[in-house]
Structure formats: structure tokens, C-alpha cells
Simulated assay, not measured.
Amino acid sequence: MRDKFSFHPVVWTLLIGTVFARGASFMALPFLALYLSNTHGIHPIWIGVTIGLSPLTGTLGGFIGGYFSDRYGRKKVILWTIFVWGLVYFGFSLATHIGTFMVLNALNGLCRSFFEPSSQAMMADLTSVDKRKRVFSLRYTAINIGASLGPLLGVYVAQFSTSLPFLLTGIMYLLYGVTLFIMLHRYSITHSIPVHQLPMLDSLIVIWRDKTLLLFIIGGVLVNVGYSQIDSNLPQYIQNSFSEGVALFAKLIALNAILVIILQIPLSLVSEKWPILRVMILGSVLFAIGFASFGYVTTIFGLMIAMAVVTIGEIFIFPSTSVFIDQIAPDNRKGTYFGAGQFRSIGNFTGPVLGGWLLQDFGGKLLFSVIGIIILCSIIFYSLGYSNIQKKD
């Protein structure tokens, strides 16, 4: 049992740091939409634009950050990004104008898009092939441990000051950066594998010609259009439709994360025996049912059931992403491929804007019905991508 979880110390640092860093960010960012709405009275469409700026900058930033990590080294990209990221959250704590929040959230997305592909690629570099699925599964668990605690802490901390959650998040990210700096230098981490020397444009062309990855990305875009509603329009809908909406939304986010922690391992043990396509289809169907249900349930219990269905779909879809990309990516372009996977963030940008318009002009029932249909369409692209994998085999 001990050998199954014997990973490189830097990998463990990244995993443990993910718990604290994600916990801190979930303490602040899920409530950004409510803050803009309650404090500034911003129109839902503009709130959607502000929330969507983060994944928009992450769309191109992920590829660039992943390429840089392949070209110049994971360590440089990771360390520079984490310290800048901490400063961004300090900026959130001081901002008072909607334009400033838009700029900061754009930088937030850029930092995330640089850090995530580089850290995932480093985990792959430092872990044997037979243990990588376990590492990525633990990483997803770490994200959700942080996500389960963050919103509840956010509600508590915000009672003292609305800017305090952002300040604490900035401090946490800087501490994470200092820890990574010490560990990366202690173990002299440079390049675990030879880096590629293709110019960035040529690398983009190589990615563009990988039809399997492109189909997977398109399917991911459609899924993310749905998932983006959780941080943008779902909290507004709940606040307008239920009493004590802010606290209820925080509890739903915590429920989502707790269920992932509890159910991920048993469901992963079952699903790892299935073809990738079956896992993706099942996840998409559950996602669609869960999100569509949000528009029709009228009780707190109904919301909890809908979130539980969404969560099970999430367990089937998201942990498979890193493993899938790791399998199709050449060893010397893993960072670039992980970064290219961030193009799925197009859905995280268009989702809040589309959802904000539907919510404002047509209401929650139509919004979440349309979202359910969009998610179901992802099955078409996952099926085509899986067909390409079989042809290659």
C-alpha cells in the first residue's frame, strides 16, 4: 500500500499545496458574481463578461504557458506564475471599480493557465507511467478538498470584511510559492526529459493537426459551457429564487466537493475498467440531467439532488482529462498538450455570457434546459474522437 503512494517529494508538495491554494481561491472567487451584483448592481451580462474573462485569457494562455514549460523548464514557469498569482489576489482585495476587477480576473485566468499545465506536466515527468493515473486522481481529490472547505470559510471570513477572503488567498499563494521554491531547489529539479525546440507557431500547427485532441477539446468546450454556470449564473438564480441564497449556494458548492471526495475512488475503480467513450457519455448525460434539473426544482432538497447528479457526472468526466492528454501527448510536448487542453476554457467564457443573457431575458427554466442540451451535444465529439483513437490502434 505504501508503495502505491510513494511519489517524488515535489509531487507531494504540489498535491498538498493544491489543497491549500484551491481552498483559498474557493474562499473568494465563487462569490465574485454575488459581490458584483450586490455591491455594484452590475447587469448579469456584464457580470458574465467579468467572470468569463478568466477562462478567456486562460484559453490562449494555457497553450503559451505549456509551451514555455516545455521550452524553458517547468520550474521557471511555475515559480514566476505562483508569485504573480499571489499579487493578483492582493489586487482583488484592494479593487473598488468593476474595470479593475475585470483586469484582475483576466490576470487570474492567465496565471492559472500557466501554472496548471506546467504543474501537471511536472507531475507526469516525476512519476512513473503506472502511477500517473493515481497521481492525477489524487490531484483532483486535492482540488475538491480545498473546494469543500473554501466556500464555507469564505462565508465566515466575509462577515468581517468583503475583501478579506481575497487578501488571505493572496497570502496563501505566496506561502505556496515560497514552499515550492525551497523544494524545487532542494531537489534540483530542472528538466526531467529533453525539451522540444520547435517554434511556438510550429508547435501550434502540430497541435492543430491532432484531430483526436481537437475533437476532445470541442467536447470539453460544450461541457464547460455547462459547468461555468456554477460560478456565474447559478448563484444569481439561487439568490433570486430561494431564501438565504448566498449561504445555500455555499453549502451546494461544499456538497459538490464533499461528494467528489467520498465517491471519486469507488466510482473511479469501477469506471477505469470501461472504455473512455462510455465514461465520457455517462458523465455528459448525468451532467445534462443535473443542470437541467436546476431550473425546475423548487426545494432545497431538490437542489441538493441536482447537485449530486452533476457531481457524479463530474467525477466521470474531469479526472479522465489529464490521463487522456498524458496518453496521447509525446513525452517532449506534454506541457504543450496540457496547455492546449486549456482551449476548452472557451466554454468557460461563452457559458457565463450566454447564461447571463438567458437568465436575464428568459429565466432559469429555459437557461438550464438549454445548458442541458448543449452538454448532451458533447457526446457527438467525444464519440468521433474515440473513433480516431481506435483507428490509430
Score class of each variant (00 low, 15 high):
Gly62Pro: 12
Ser378Pro: 09
Leu180Val: 10
Gly91Cys: 05
Leu87Ile: 15
Thr57Cys: 09
Arg186Ala: 15
Gln236Asn: 01
Val370Ala: 15
Gly290Gln: 11
Ile375Met: 14
Gly62Lys: 09
Phe83Tyr: 11
Phe287Leu: 11
Tyr156Thr: 10
Gly313Cys: 10
Leu204Glu: 06
Asn233Tyr: 08
Leu60Tyr: 11
Val11Asn: 10
Ile45Glu: 14
Ile258Lys: 06
Ile346Val: 15
Ala124Lys: 07
Leu149Arg: 00
Ile145Glu: 04
Met304Ala: 12
Ile238Asn: 10
Thr336Tyr: 00
Ile317Arg: 02
Ile315Ala: 01
Ile389Asn: 03
Ile258Asp: 01
Val10Glu: 02
Asp326His: 01
Phe316His: 10
Ala147Pro: 05
Phe349Trp: 11
Glu314Ala: 02
Gly146Thr: 03
Gln327Asp: 14
Val279Ala: 14
Trp85Leu: 08
Ser93Met: 11
Ile258Tyr: 00
Met172Asn: 07
Ser228Phe: 06
Ile371Met: 10
Thr162Ile: 13
Ser54Val: 09
Asp70Met: 02
Trp80Gln: 12
His43Asp: 14
Ser128Tyr: 06
Phe301Cys: 03
Ile315Lys: 03
Leu107Ile: 09
Arg344Ala: 11
Phe101Trp: 06
Phe160Arg: 04
Leu367Gln: 10
Asp3Glu: 14
Phe90Glu: 05
Ile312Ala: 00
Ser268Val: 02
Arg132Ala: 02
Gly146Ile: 06
Pro330Glu: 07
Val129Asn: 05
Ile64Glu: 00
Phe294Ser: 02
Asp210Cys: 03
Gly335Pro: 08
Tyr227Gly: 07
Tyr237Ser: 14
Leu94Val: 08
Gln197Glu: 14
Pro165Ser: 10
Arg22Ile: 14
Val285Arg: 06
Met304Glu: 03
Val353Trp: 13
Phe31Gln: 03
Ile51Asp: 00
Pro352Thr: 08
Val103Phe: 15
Ser69Thr: 07
Gly335Asn: 06
Tyr35Gly: 01
Tyr296Glu: 09
Gly73Glu: 02
Phe249Gly: 06
Phe381Thr: 14
Ser128Gly: 11
Gly356Asn: 13
Met280Leu: 13
Val223Cys: 11
Phe166Gly: 03
Ala106Met: 12
Gly385Cys: 13
His8Thr: 07
Leu104Trp: 02
Gly313Arg: 06
Tyr382Ile: 09
Gly66Arg: 02
Ala124Asp: 07
Ile82Ala: 08
Cys377Gly: 02
Phe343Leu: 13
Trp85Met: 11
Val19Cys: 07
Lys131Phe: 04
